[in-house]
């Protein structure tokens, strides 16, 4: 059982109306179904180096999906709020006030999980702009920060040649992903007709570029695992993962908000 104390800031906006004895009215809230969305994996993307890349599997473990409305979040001692102020560029979402949550661990295994209900989030009614979450190890028994939180498998093709790839990535313990886009006007009524769909994007939905830009897969075929055999593999535990810049660039992209998104779509019937 995970202690709830660390979630207090996240849950406070939701619980406050219940705790305030003389609250004039309870804030309107909505129960939002959250589903896995594998649709970005259905199509290949073309990288800046001309590779056509298709993902055959993407695994991601996370916890405590939180939903934010537009607002200001301030830096404390060099936290990410400052980076929001200092490095944000138009079209990206930073910070915001948390007014919704789906608490608990989520393991996404795409495309196998396509359409799977991940849970029901509680959101205050409002105009939402972004979601946050915390990366978790894929292996629930592994220590945070030391075990992969993401696993990607796929293939990259160019000039009639194909390289299959398999790569895993760790996230620092407790690492929060802040500001993945989620644009929705949520009310109790809209939540009955709509649902939130969590997806990994292969192309940045807000700017030019794709997740695999800069990766020369033909070169990585030999470099990552020492064998030019049409397969490039790099595990997060490999010493090479500490220094290999193409791998580290991919890791930085996977730890950024540029390649995650929650869409607001008409609700599909529950199976």
């Amino acid at each position: 059982m995970r202690p709830l104390a660390p979630l207090a800031p996240l849950l406070a906006p939701l619980l406050a109306p219940l705790l305030a004895c003389d609250a004039p009215a309870e804030a309107p809230r909505a129960q939002v179904l959250v589903r896995a969305d594998a649709s970005p994996l259905a199509a290949a993307v073309t990288t800046d180096l001309g590779y056509e890349v298709r993902l055959t599997r993407a695994q991601l473990a996370l916890r405590d999906l939180s939903f934010t409305v537009a607002g200001e979040l301030h830096a404390r001692g060099g936290g990410w709020g400052l980076l929001g102020a200092a490095w944000a560029h138009p079209g990206h979402y930073e910070g915001g006030e948390v007014t919704g949550a789906l608490v608990g661990r989520i393991l996404l295994d795409l495309p196998a999980d396509e359409g799977r209900a991940l849970g029901e989030a509680t959101l205050l009614s409002g105009a939402y702009t972004a979601v946050n979450f915390i990366f978790e190890p894929l292996d629930p028994d592994a220590p945070e920060g030391a075990a992969p939180a993401l696993l990607l498998e796929g293939a990259a093709a160019r000039e009639g040649r194909e390289v299959r790839f398999e790569v895993s990535v760790t996230a620092p313990a407790g690492r929060v992903l802040v500001g993945a886009p989620f644009e929705a006007s949520v009310t109790a009524a809209s939540a009955r007709a709509m649902e939130a769909r969590l997806r990994i994007e292969l192309s940045n939905p807000l700017a030019a570029g794709c997740l695999f830009d800069g990766l020369d897969f033909f070169a990585l075929d030999a470099a990552w695992d020492g064998a030019e055999d049409g397969a490039a593999r790099l595990d997060a535990s490999s010493p090479r993962a500490l220094t290999d810049e193409p791998y580290l660039a991919l890791r930085r992209a996977l730890l950024s908000h540029s390649f995650y998104r929650v869409t607001w779509a008409p609700r599909a019937p529950l199976e």
């Binding site: 990410w80 980076l83 944000a88 992903l177 220094t243 580290l248």
Partner: peptide, 14 residues
């Protein structure tokens, strides 16, 4: 020099 394995956060611009 690249930031390498250092954690630049969710923005990713650094």
């Amino acid at each position: 020099a690249s930031v390498g394995a250092l954690d630049v956060g969710s923005g990713g611009e650094v």
